[in-house]
Write a protein that binds this DNA or RNA. Structure first.
Length: 127
RNA sequence: UCCACAGACCUCUCCGUCGCUUCUCGCUUGCGGGAAGAGGAAAGUCCGGACAACGCAGAGCAACUGUACCUCCUAACGGGAGGGCGACACUUUCGGGUGUUGACAGAUAGUGCCACAGAAAAUUACCGCCCUAGCAAUAGGGUAAGGGUGAAAAUGUGCGGUAAGAGCGCACAGGGCUUGGAUGUGAAUUUGAGUUCGGGUAAACCUUGCGGGUUGAAAGAUCAUGUAUACCAGUCUUUGAGAGCUGCUCGCUCGAAAGCUUCGGCGCAGAUUGGAGGGUAGAUCGAUAGAACCAAUGGGCAACUGUUGGUCUAGAUAAAUGGCGGGGCUCCAAGGCAAUUUAUUGCCAAUGAGAACAGAAUCCGGCUUACGGUCUGUGGUAUUU
RNA sequence: GGCUCCGUAGUUCAACUGGAUAGAAUGUCAGAUUUCGGCUCUGAUGGUUGGGGGUUCGAAUCCUCCCGGAGUCA
């Protein structure tokens, strides 16, 4: 597995980029995970930036939201290698938002399986 | 055994591995090593502070707002400790004791309100009783004993007294106010004298004592980018103009609202010229060593605190504690083994779970609310020996 | 993170500053009218006044603690 880290530079935190993803991005849903992505030409950021989110409307307690975000981030971190290397190969930049929209928590194995399918779909979009 | 209350403690642990945040060391400057990394409530934002900006000539009154038995603790508090008084419960050898609890100043400073019912809800007169006038019906007056109403009815009982009655007088009992003595730092307790008998409501207005400038870290400071309608200075023009989460502010005249008195200072707005650099987005500081924690010892009934020694204990900014594998421990328990009282006790234990409430956001002291477990103490209850 | 405000039938609003059965419209249901339906008329239905505790003789109203919702501040 190549480079399974998740430093701060790979997190989507700039306000303009985040707003653009939600207004102009394209998305698809894989079981409990909603994926939204958008290509960008910002020169100050790296090739791939990701933001995780859990809606407050479904999970009212902060502890539940924190735990789901950690699991979502962990599943992404372990499987993102091929997507990132392909982006660097094709000289493209991508912003991604991962939203947990399930009504109840699922096991980590099931989450990871759906994450694989979502990342494969994103790889297919790089052309 | 169960229930209630009070107090103390804990919030699984260890190893490996892949990652996250901060600090630190090393060098090859983006990698490696090391250290640390959520709570008792981090919550609600209900109080009190620290800190910051703005305001402030000084002072008094008013207004607004909070608070309210006493003493102490504390940086401060509406918090806490101890005490007083009242209420309730239990108990009693009827002296009291124990426990729980109270927004516990003033209703004898004033104003208001007290529905329905009732004669009357606070200078009361419907029935009744009594007196006078009258043949009588009735009229005038006296009265608060009796009647019923209501949440609440003019202190209660007895005797005297009277036309009938009435604290009108007296005795006993009870309450209020003023005042003297004793005890106590004080609230207060106890006792003597005088006076008095005036319903409730202040979580109605209010009165009295004490306190409060306003706004809050999205406060505020700095940097880079960079330019206004904002700011400063000069000149000219005009009489009304701008601002506001702050007791709105300002020279003269008039007028409406904005609180007053003494007193100090000062023109406002528009145009234009020059200076200067606002907003937006970002970074850094604020910002983590403190009214800190732990231990020993001294003081105090206690809250708390003095001294000495030791420790460094989260600082993130879309927001850091997670994933996987293994061991231990605890709990639930299918089932197995042994013993006998044949339905109980003891031992072993696959599998499963590691919980409940819940995630720091400037920081402290409290309060309130949510909630799992262990231990100790007190009280109650039932059972067995 | 701070500050401010609100909560009454299924829905939209009342209830005169504490006074008794919490009222009106609309909705729903039933009946009448109509060949049938609508409109119309009549009647009924529906509330732990967001929840708990307190003050008071009495609370939707006053006080306090929670719960839920909304607005606002760079």
């Amino acid at each position: 597995m190549t480079n399974a880290t998740f430093p701060k530079s790979e997190r989507l935190s700039k306000r303009d980029l985040l707003r653009n993803v939600f207004t102009e991005g394209r998305g698809r849903t894989y079981a409990p995970i909603r994926v939204i992505y958008r290509f960008n030409e910002d020169e100050t950021v790296g090739a791939l930036q990701v933001c995780t989110s859990v809606p407050k409307r479904i999970y009212a307690k902060a502890t539940d939201r924190n735990r789901l975000k950690r699991q979502l981030r962990e599943a992404y971190r372990l499987r993102k290698g091929t997507l990132k290397s392909k982006l660097e190969e094709k000289q493209r930049k991508m912003s991604v938002v991962l939203i947990f929209i399930g009504k109840e928590a699922v096991s980590f194995q099931a989450l990871q399986k759906q994450m694989d399918r979502a990342l494969n779909w994103l790889e297919g979009k790089i052309e």
